[in-house]
Computed example of a mutant assay.
Amino acid sequence: MLMRICLFRILSVIIVLFFTAGSVSASESEVDVTKIERIPDYSVELSAEDFEEYSDIYTEQPLNDKFLAYQVRLPKGWSRVEIGLNSVNRKSDENENRFETDDGTGIPQKISRRFLGEIAKYYGPGRIEELSRFEIKAQELDYEITAKNWFMHEVLLQGYTLEGLKVISDRRVEALYVVVEKDTAFIVRSAVEMNGPRIVVSSYYVPEIHWMKERAYQQRAIESFNFVAPESVKIEKMREHMFLDLLSFEYPASWKLVAPSIFSTESMEAKLLRSKDNKILNGEIHINIVSSEFTNAVADEIQYIKDSMESRGLTLGKLLGTREDYHLNEDVYYAHVEQYEATNQSGYLGYELWIAIMEEERYYYVLTLLTPSRRGDFYMWAQNEETFRRVIQSFKP
């Protein structure tokens, strides 16, 4: 075990030596949206017992969809607003896998893959100023992505002023942010959570002038939101690739596998490509499997990666971060991932290269992910990052 730890440290040094020379710094105007404050906690202002006493519980199943069935507590005196989802006509569509409803106008409504659709709304007691409200929106997912990354894309898309974020799990995050509607600023606390193939956003809006006295109720309400029948499913169909009968990994069906013939079990490779239109490459994962009997195998692979990037007109820049929080097969010793900026010949910081080094008894695995950068196309980056994570975790010696 000590030998493996020493080797792991040596491999990390090799990567740093290869890629830190000639590093490129990000401009000061660029902001890493993943570095944000933790969401404030106001629970001391209202105990769980007091909140339960001064609130009512609501249990609903919008669209007669089990994945949308929820339960939430809201302050007493709130009222539910009908939004035309009573008459439900559930239709099967093999291509889109969406649900349609008739709201009485004859206009079909859908749980869309592209936009958040409102499925429930509640208002607080009347007052002269804008009312507080609680609303629930849903969207159907078509790619694997974490709740955090999905929400961060929404923040960028909508231009929210994000005040804090709390990651509960890969499937749920809670956030505090500011939105302006007409001339009124609202402080919004939301829970973003996946259930089945849906992502659901429950949000408690409070006009800024009332937020101080209502913020504890806001927090308790959001924390109380949960699904009646939580279920985790794979969003995308997964395929398996085997290197003979030696080892295997899984990958999403939306990625194209390129696997050359195997002439030697001492060195094997495969490549995964992602393209939305079969013209522009949106992501690339390269997998190299080399025998652990070759003492210079990993160093040679790292040099090959560097040469390959340069031949494509890309230069590796500064280290963006490292990751080791992967759930691996018990026969895989470790997975160490380092993330680097990549620039083209004009200096455009539009790419990232991730390098993973893994080891098991017989082989080293050296994986790379080439992806649009998180600053350039956050949603694409988030989807590619999640695919890379799933590929790493799926390896079975």
Rank of each mutant, 00 (worst) to 15 (best):
K237G: 06
S254W: 07
Y217A: 15
S346K: 06
I392P: 06
L370R: 01
I199T: 02
M242G: 01
A26F: 14
E154A: 12
F151M: 04
Y205H: 09
V88F: 04
S254Q: 13
I187C: 05
T184L: 14
T20I: 14
S169L: 13
V332C: 06
P62K: 06
S112H: 05
Q339Y: 12
E30Y: 15
S248W: 03
I39D: 02
I14A: 11
E45G: 07
H286P: 02
M212E: 06
G347V: 10
E82G: 13
Y251E: 02
V332N: 03
G22D: 08
S27C: 10
I187G: 00
Q345H: 09
V391T: 00
D331V: 14
A21P: 10
S87V: 15
V258E: 02
C6Q: 07
S346I: 08
E359D: 10
Y340W: 15
D170L: 15
L85C: 10
Y70A: 08
V192W: 00
G196T: 08
V228P: 04
H286T: 02
S12M: 09
E293M: 12
P125V: 04
V167E: 06
L281R: 02
K76Y: 08
L314M: 09
R323W: 12
R127K: 09
T105Y: 14
G124R: 09
G164E: 01
I111W: 07
F395H: 01
N296Q: 13
R38K: 14
D377Y: 00
L349K: 05
E338K: 15
R189I: 14
N89C: 15
C6N: 09
A270R: 01
W255P: 04
I57Q: 10
D183A: 09
S264T: 07
M309C: 09
K35Y: 01
V337N: 04
L85W: 12
E360H: 08
E330M: 13
P230S: 13
I302G: 00
E385H: 01
S267N: 10
Y333D: 09
L316N: 01
F263D: 05
Y204W: 10
A382V: 01
F395A: 03
Y363A: 01
Q339V: 07
D93W: 12
V13C: 13
A21G: 08
I357A: 03
L247C: 06
I10L: 14
T371F: 04
K318F: 15
A270D: 00
E324A: 09
H241E: 00
I83T: 05
S132T: 11
T322M: 15
H286F: 07
V366Q: 03
S394W: 03
